[in-house]
C-alpha cells in the first residue's frame, strides 16, 4: 500500500504542489508510526524529557542536599535508589533533574542554528550571485576548524557557563546547516515552477514563502535532527571539561567529571551520568535515522 502511495507521490506533476505535499507528509507520518525502533526511541526520549520536566513531582528529593554520612553510597542503599554522589547528594534525583540542562544543551543550539543557518542558507541559495558567494565563502572559514576545537575555543574564550556553551555550539552548527540549506535551495530555485511563479509576477518573498520553504524545510530538518545527539555529547563534554554548566547544578556531563575521582570507590555510580548521555544520544540518533528514511521517497 505504501508502495503505491510512493509511486503516485513521485509521479505527480510539480504543479499540484499543495496536494502532493499533503500526501507526502501524511505518508511520512504513517511510515514513522509503523517503525517500531523509531517509535520506541521517541518513547524513551519522551519519558526522559517528561521525567526532567516533572522531576520535583516524580521524585520529591532535593538534588542539592548534601549528606556527609552518605557520600558515595552504593546503589540500592536505604533512601538512595541509585546511590549518592561524592557529596552525598541523591543520584536518582540528580540524574532526573540533570535531564533539564542536558536536554537543553542538546536541543537549543540545534534549534537556534536551524533558524539562523536555515535563513542564511535559504537567502544565499535563493539570491545566488555575489551574495551567495560572500555568505558561503565566509562560512567556509568555520570549516577550517574541527568542530570540537571550535566549540572549546569559543567557550574557552567566552568563559564557562550554560549560555556560553549554547552560543559556542550554535556557532559550530550554523555553517553546517547553512551549507545544507544553501544547496537544497539552489536546486529548488532552478526548478520550472519557481521560474513560472517569478514570470507571473510573484515577489521574492512570496516565492520563498509559498514555493521554496515547503520544499527545503524537509532536508534541512532531517539534517538538524541528526545534530541533536552531537550537540548533547559536545555540550555535556564542555561541562565535563569544566567549560559548561557550573557546579552545583545537576548536569550529566558535569556530574560525570565530579564523580571521576570515585571510579575506584564506587564505579557503578560514577558511570551512571554517562549512561544517561549515551542512551539519550543513541535514541536521538536512531530517531533521526528513522525520520530520514521515512522522508526519503527514493528508498
Amino acid at each position: 500500500m505504501s508502495v503505491t502511495a510512493l509511486a503516485t507521490s513521485s509521479a505527480a506533476p510539480p504543479v499540484a504542489a499543495t496536494a502532493r505535499s499533503r500526501g507526502y507528509w501524511s505518508g511520512v507520518g504513517r511510515r514513522i508510526l509503523r517503525d517500531p525502533l523509531t517509535m520506541g526511541c521517541a518513547g524513551v526520549l519522551l519519558l526522559i524529557a517528561a521525567a526532567a520536566v516533572l522531576a520535583p513531582w516524580i521524585l520529591p528529593v532535593d538534588p542539592y542536599k548534601t549528606s556527609m554520612l552518605h557520600r558515595l553510597a552504593p546503589m540500592g542503599s536505604a533512601g538512595y535508589l541509585l546511590g549518592a554522589d561524592e557529596l552525598g547528594r541523591d543520584m536518582a534525583a540528580r540524574l532526573i533533574h540533570g535531564g533539564r540542562l542536558s536536554l537543553m544543551l542538546g536541543v537549543l543550539p540545534v534549534v537556534f542554528a536551524f533558524v539562523i543557518g536555515g535563513s542564511i542558507g535559504i537567502l544565499a541559495g535563493f539570491a545566488g550571485g555575489w551574495l551567495n558567494m560572500v555568505l558561503m565563502r565566509s562560512l567556509d572559514v568555520f570549516y577550517a576548524f574541527p568542530s570540537v576545537l571550535l566549540a572549546v575555543a569559543i567557550s574557552g574564550a567566552l568563559g564557562s557557563g550554560m549560555s556560553n556553551s549554547i552560543i559556542a555550539l550554535t556557532v559550530v552548527f550554523v555553517p553546517q546547516i547553512s551549507r545544507v540549506a544553501e544547496s537544497v535551495t539552489t536546486q529548488v530555485r532552478s526548478l520550472d515552477y519557481v521560474e513560472a511563479a517569478r514570470m507571473s509576477g510573484a515577489s521574492a518573498f512570496t516565492i520563498i514563502r509559498a514555493h521554496v520553504l515547503g520544499n527545503v524545510m524537509g532536508p534541512i530538518f532531517v539534517y538538524a535532527t541528526g545534530l541533536v545527539s552531537v550537540s548533547l555529547i559536545l555540550g555535556s563534554g564542555l561541562s565535563f571539561l569544566g567549560l559548561g554548566v557550573k557546579p552545583p547544578e545537576p548536569e550529566w556531563g558535569l556530574m560525570l567529571t565530579t564523580l571521576r575521582s570515585a571510579i575506584y570507590v564506587n564505579p557503578a555510580v560514577a558511570a551512571l551520568p554517562g549512561a544517561m548521555i549515551f542512551v539519550t544520544s543513541m535514541c536521538f540518533n536512531l530517531m533521526a535515522d528513522g525520520i530520514r528514511s521515512a522522508m526519503d521517497t527514493k528508498a
Binding site: 545527539s229 555529547i233 555535556s236 563534554g237 565535563f240 556531563g253 560525570l256 571521576r260 571510579i263 575506584y264 564505579p267 560514577a270 558511570a271 551520568p273 554517562g274 549512561a275 548521555i277 549515551f278 544520544s281 543513541m282 536521538f284 540518533n285 536512531l286 535515522d289
Partner: peptide, 21 residues
C-alpha cells in the same frame, strides 16, 4: 550507531574502570 552515539569521554572512563581500576 553505538560508535557515533557514545560520549567518548564516558567510554574512556568505563575502560579505565574496567582495565585499570
Amino acid at each position: 550507531v553505538v560508535g557515533v552515539s557514545v560520549p567518548h569521554y564516558w567510554l574512556g572512563l568505563l575502560l579505565t574502570i574496567i582495565f585499570s581500576a
